[in-house]
Computed example of a mutant assay.
Amino acid sequence: MRLPAPRGPVTTVLFERLTRPPHPFDPPSLGVEDDEDLQLALFTCYELHYQGFEEVDDAWEWEPSLLAVRRTLERRFEEWLARTVPPPPTTGEPERVCRALTDLVAEAEGPPLAAFLERKAGPDQFREFVVHRSIYHLKEADPHTWALPRLCGRAKAALAEIQADEYGGGRRERMHSELFRATMRGLDLDDSYGAYLDRVPAITLATVNLMSLFGLHRARRGALLGHLAVFEMTSSLPNLRYGRGLRRLGGDATACRFYDEHVLADAVHEQIAAHDMCGDLAATEPALTGDILYGAACALTLDRLFAEHVLDRWSRGTTSLREASLAVGSP
């Protein structure tokens, strides 16, 4: 994809520098006052570790001065997370981590976005929802795969089992990212990677940045696994509702297959993730138990904030996306 339009002083300076050959540069003033500027700058830095940008030399990925910029942005994000997500009670017994994850999920009563999409959303609202989710689903599983070389034993095997399903068991057409492309095409949306980056707001970027923050730091491996566990544990019922909502709006079997696949797969994955993956990591590295639960709490909180944003905008009769006029070249 191409670099998006800047959203503030940090992204303005950052994007201008990234279009040049790699070079050391002093970090711009990072007194970030705007979440849009912060989250887009951080997303851009992280994206260099995934598929990158057409105008940006791949050598920027490991430029030390850019990594310093990224770390400053990460600290701003971590400070916001610390204010927003209270650390959950940490069980002193690693074997209780599965029960603690279940309790966190049970207590997370977020806004009923899935129910709204199932029963009430119009075609334009459903398309907006898919646009939001495209920022992650077109690279689904990639952030969590960073944990594989950082684990061992049963936890590693469990994560590999989950990821193998996410990547279609070796068949491209069954990869979850490819299934989501079919959903986008069924809704007459552009299915190219990052096509709607200019249209999604800060909270959508934050949900994806959270995974990259946890995934790119070995010290955060516990949080990354906790994130994945609740991601799987809270997936089956919402995806069932998304599929029903899309069928209500005329979606065919191909367009709905992404959601149907997750109803079945994630019902299995949630047991593997909670017991075999997180349970084993907590047993072998008890010091990471708190990190596992914090990563889970962060995932649940950001998902709730995302849903609140979307439903609030829709209740006011406005788009949940950034207006096209705010982004250069937006669809």
Rank of each mutant, 00 (worst) to 15 (best):
M1R: 11
R2Q: 14
L3S: 06
L3A: 06
R7S: 05
V10D: 00
T11R: 07
T11K: 07
T11C: 02
V13S: 14
R17E: 06
L18K: 01
L18C: 01
P21K: 09
P22Y: 05
P24C: 03
D26F: 10
P28K: 10
S29R: 15
L30R: 13
E33D: 15
E33N: 12
D34M: 02
E36H: 07
L40E: 07
L40Y: 11
A41V: 04
F43L: 08
Y50P: 00
G52S: 07
E55C: 09
V56R: 04
D58M: 05
W60C: 06
W62A: 15
L67A: 12
A68T: 13
V69N: 01
R75F: 03
E78W: 14
E79I: 10
W80N: 07
L81G: 04
A82M: 08
R83D: 15
T84F: 07
T84Q: 09
P88F: 07
P89Y: 04
T90K: 10
T91G: 07
G92N: 03
G92M: 03
E93K: 12
P94M: 04
E95L: 05
L101W: 08
T102S: 14
D103Y: 09
V105M: 10
G110S: 11
G110Y: 01
L113N: 02
F116A: 02
V131E: 02
V131W: 05
R133T: 12
S134N: 05
S134V: 00
S134C: 02
I135N: 05
Y136F: 12
H137K: 14
K139S: 15
E140A: 12
D142G: 02
H144G: 01
W146Y: 15
W146N: 07
P149H: 05
L151T: 00
R154C: 04
R154H: 14
R154V: 09
G169M: 12
R171G: 09
R171Y: 15
R172K: 15
E173D: 14
R174T: 10
E178P: 00
L179N: 02
R181W: 05
T183N: 01
D188F: 13
D190P: 03
D190K: 05
D190S: 06
S192F: 07
A195H: 04
P201G: 03
A202H: 09
A202S: 11
A202T: 08
T204Q: 11
L205W: 11
L210C: 08
L210V: 02
R218S: 11
R220W: 12
R221V: 14
G226R: 02
H227T: 08
H227P: 00
V230M: 00
V230P: 00
F231T: 04
S235F: 05
S236D: 11
P238K: 07
R248V: 04
L249P: 04
L249D: 00
A255G: 03
A255P: 11
R257C: 09
F258M: 08
Y259S: 08
E261K: 15
E261M: 13
H262P: 04
V263T: 12
L264D: 13
A267Q: 12
H269E: 01
Q271C: 09
D276S: 15
M277P: 03
M277R: 08
D280E: 14
T284V: 13
G290H: 11
G290T: 06
F306N: 09
A307S: 10
E308P: 03
L311Y: 00
D312N: 12
S315Q: 10
G317F: 04
G317D: 08
T319C: 09
S320D: 01
L321E: 02
L321Y: 08
V328D: 14
V328C: 14
G329H: 14
P331H: 10
